Amino acid sequence: MKNTLSDLNNYLFEQLERLQDDSLDESGLDKEIQRSEAVQKVAKTIIDNGQLALQAKKHLDEYGQGDKVELPMLGVISK
């Protein structure tokens, strides 16, 4: 499993496709809805974490220290 926000975006769209599966019966749809709600909560936490990391990186860049910070969740690794 990859751990970037781009990967998360792909996973969220995959979940959306599963919700739109016409072959799901009522029970299957209920399970997918529950899964989607759990995924949404975790995704929000990951996105919030990414936003915090980006804010920290911007702050450090402002003071000339940003090259010492890696943000792998954003797909950015400074060297």
Rank of each mutant, 00 (worst) to 15 (best):
V76W: 13
D48H: 03
L54S: 07
L16Y: 07
V39E: 12
K44F: 13
K58A: 08
D30A: 14
I46S: 10
N9M: 15
E62R: 14
S36M: 01
A56R: 14
E62P: 00
E32P: 06
N10K: 07
I46N: 07
V69M: 05
H59Y: 04
T4M: 05
Y63Q: 01
V42D: 12
E17T: 15
I47D: 05
E37T: 03
G66D: 02
G50A: 11
N3W: 06
V69Y: 07
K58S: 03
E37W: 13
L60K: 00
T4K: 04
D22E: 10
N3P: 01
L54D: 14
S36P: 13
G28I: 09
L52D: 14
I46R: 07
Q15G: 05
K41F: 06
G28A: 04
S36Q: 13
K79N: 14
L74V: 05
Q34E: 10
Q65M: 09
I47E: 02
N49I: 11
G50R: 02
A53F: 14
D22L: 03
Q15F: 04
Q15C: 13
L16N: 15
V76F: 00
L12E: 09
I47S: 02
N3F: 15
R35L: 06
Q51D: 15
L54G: 01
Q15R: 09
S27Y: 06
A43V: 02
H59K: 03
V42F: 06
M73L: 15
Q40R: 14
A38Y: 10
P72H: 00
N9S: 12
N9C: 15
Q15L: 15
D67G: 14
K2I: 04
T45P: 00
K2E: 11
R35W: 12
G75Y: 15
D25F: 01
F13M: 07
N49E: 11
G64C: 10
Y11K: 02
V76I: 10
G50T: 00
H59T: 02
L16D: 07
E14H: 11
S36R: 11
L24Q: 04
D61I: 03
V69E: 05
P72G: 07
G28C: 09
N3Q: 15
M73P: 09
M73V: 04
G66I: 01
L52E: 14
D61R: 01
V69N: 03
M1K: 03
R35G: 15
V39T: 06
I47Q: 06
D61W: 00
S36T: 13
R18E: 12
G50M: 00
G64S: 03
K57N: 13
V69C: 09
Y63E: 01
Q34P: 04
Q15I: 11
Q20L: 12
F13H: 11
K44G: 12
I77A: 06
V76S: 05
D22S: 11
A43C: 10
A43H: 05
G50F: 01
L8S: 10
K41A: 12
D67S: 14
I77R: 08
G66F: 00
E26N: 10
L19T: 02
K44V: 04
K57Y: 08
I46A: 08
K44W: 08
A53L: 13
L60P: 00
V42K: 07
H59Q: 09
D7N: 07
T45V: 10
G75D: 02
V76T: 02
I46Q: 11
N3L: 12
L5R: 03
E62V: 00
Q34V: 05
